[in-house]
């Protein structure tokens, strides 16, 4: 049982015109097995929240705390956060030229488990994860995210979720750029990973359609750098009908 606790999180980025505050005090608690949907308009700061928790160097934490089972996440380096059990499926996964998916995954799992996985079982694990996401076996030999289609990038992120088995996963717009079939395949992957490892999931999304496949326990509306409304799944239905207008004009 793990708990990620975000309290009063304030984050700014450096711009040509000085520091700009993007997160203005975010409170959120995620426990193992729970699914939280964070929904909000573009530019409201959803990715900033995700990156700040993962430790992207671009974001300056100006206030608040983030703890995982009591441990101070903000004090950890990026790799330490992953080792502590945090995972971020990125909205825009990064190309790493010349590094094959297979080499990348083996290096990551070795780092996370503290020892190299047994070759035979590992090859089986990767093959299984790729098949479950309807990915061609040749995928493992391609360079990380290089020349991947939008859908392939998202599958690759969710394949990592299944293989790396984090405690808490933040999925940043994993649904964007996916057609209906891909959305279903990717969603099933998330549900599988969640069930087999009791992962706590933060599902960041702009649209409600992914919530047909991944059922949230809690829905948080995010606007202008903070959570402005919270509720159960029914809140998503309200957003579906009314959009974000009432939150952004406020």
């Amino acid at each position: 049982m793990s708990t990620l606790e975000i309290r009063g999180l304030k984050v700014s980025v450096d711009t040509e015109n000085g520091a700009v505050e993007i997160l203005k005090g975010v409170d959120l608690t995620i426990k193992s097995g729970e699914t939280h949907a964070i929904m909000g308009p573009n530019g409201s700061g959803k990715s900033t929240l995700a990156y700040s928790i993962a430790g992207h160097p671009k974001y300056n934490i100006t206030g608040g705390t983030v703890t995982l089972d009591g441990a101070d996440v903000l004090e950890m380096t990026v790799d330490e956060r992953a080792k502590a059990g945090l995972f971020l499926a990125m909205q825009y996964p990064v190309e790493v030229p010349g590094v094959s998916v297979s080499n990348f995954l083996r290096t990551a799992v070795t780092a996370l488990r503290g020892e190299a996985p047994k070759l035979r079982t590992w090859v089986g694990e990767v093959k299984g994860a790729m098949e479950a996401l309807s990915m061609d076996p040749s995928f493992a030999q391609r360079n990380v995210n290089e020349g991947f289609s939008g859908g392939e990038k998202k599958r690759h992120e969710i394949m990592q979720l299944e293989l790396l088995k984090p405690k808490i996963a933040i999925l940043d717009e994993t649904d964007s750029g996916l057609d209906v079939d891909a959305l279903r395949i990717v969603s099933e992957g998330v549900n599988r990973a969640k069930e087999s490892n009791n992962i706590g999931v933060v599902l960041i999304t702009h649209y409600t359609r992914i919530l047909r496949y991944i059922k949230p326990d809690f829905v948080h509306v995010f606007a202008n750098g903070k959570i402005v409304e919270e509720g159960g799944p029914e809140l998503a239905d309200k957003l579906e009908a009314n959009g974000y207008a009432e939150y952004v004009t406020a």
Partner: peptide, 11 residues
């Protein structure tokens, strides 16, 4: 690139 790799536990 470094952030992406490190976010997967690689030092």
């Amino acid at each position: 690139q470094l952030f992406y790799l490190m976010s997967r536990g690689i030092n």
